[in-house]
Design a protein around this nucleic acid. Structure first.
Length: 277
DNA sequence: GGCCAGGACTATG
DNA sequence: CATAGTCATGGC
């Protein structure tokens, strides 16, 4: 079931219902509401309500971007079907792809909010931010609100104290407003970062206050389609490797990087399948 | 109730 | 540079 791989914590920018999915498409893609429903194991039905026929190519491109559909994973499966750390997850999660954040501001936001807190709480905070600063329209199908994540400019009048009221820490509030300001001023854009190497992307992103190596690699993985992103400081990654290898303690960043050597070129998908393991 | 979460910054040797 | 302290709060 293809839709199984959507992030189970997301609650605002799309809704999973009856094994299907409904969302208000991003600005610039379409103004319509897209319904995605499983027809069979390999076939999805897409229904666009409130948009126009001319939106179809943009919608298709958006889905390819969101779910990394242009990636040929054949070599990855072939190479790592016997890998001691990956093999089991490759089998049980066969067909999974990186579910990304095509929106750079959204990716940076969840990256910052996700630092050093449990993921569920991070998504709770993201939901509060969306409800406070984002935009919505009513879904005529069921009357539910469909939300778009806020644009950087939507945070222009927002203060640290406003974000503190949402239980976002003061420091993270400062990081977020800093990133929003940088992006609203046009100094940071996805299109500019996309063609750059992972090293240069990481170097640019970590110049921003609040973006360290973990967040930079997270964004490279979830938003910039890099294939060698590897957030070695990631607690979830460390815990899953610890469990899979039966270690006494979590592997260090250096140990994890040593373990990752066989995955050279496929670090992003190795990370993805380890997260799902 | 204590420990840990899909970390990063800052101050201090 | 390497290390320790700080931030904040939910989930188990």
């Amino acid at each position: 079931m293809l839709l199984r791989w959507l992030d189970r914590y997301e609650t605002y920018t799309y809704e999973i219902r009856d094994q299907g999915l409904r969302l208000w498409l991003p600005a610039g893609v379409s103004d319509g509401i897209l319904a995605i429903e499983p027809e069979s194991d390999t076939l999805l039905t897409l229904t666009l309500a409130g948009g126009t026929q001319a939106d179809q190519p943009a919608v298709a491109a958006f889905l390819r971007d969101w779910w990394d559909l242009d990636r040929d994973l054949g070599p990855f499966y072939a190479q790592f079907q016997e890998d001691p750390l990956l093999a089991a997850s490759l089998r049980s999660n066969y067909g999974a792809r990186v579910v990304g954040f095509p929106d750079l501001f959204e990716a940076l936001t969840i990256g910052i909010l996700g630092q050093q807190v449990n993921v569920q709480f991070a998504y709770t905070l993201k939901g509060r931010l969306t409800a406070a600063c984002g935009h919505h329209r009513e879904d005529p199908e069921d009357g539910h609100r469909r939300w778009r994540f806020p644009q950087p400019a939507d945070l222009a009048g927002v203060t640290v104290d406003d974000l503190r009221d949402m239980q976002i820490s003061r420091r993270k509030a400062e990081y977020l407003l800093g990133v929003a300001e940088e992006m609203a001023a046009g100094k940071l854009q996805r299109g500019t970062l996309l063609p750059l190497s992972l090293e240069v992307q990481t170097q640019r992103l970590t110049q921003l206050r609040g973006i360290g190596p973990w967040t930079a690699h997270y964004v490279a993985l979830k938003c910039l389609h890099q294939q060698r992103a590897f957030p070695a400081g990631d607690a979830g990654l460390q815990n899953n490797v610890k469990r899979l290898l039966g270690l006494e303690r979590k592997p260090s960043v250096e140990e994890l990087q040593t373990l990752a050597r066989p995955w050279a070129g496929w670090e992003t998908y190795a990370t993805w399948f380890l997260w799902m393991a």
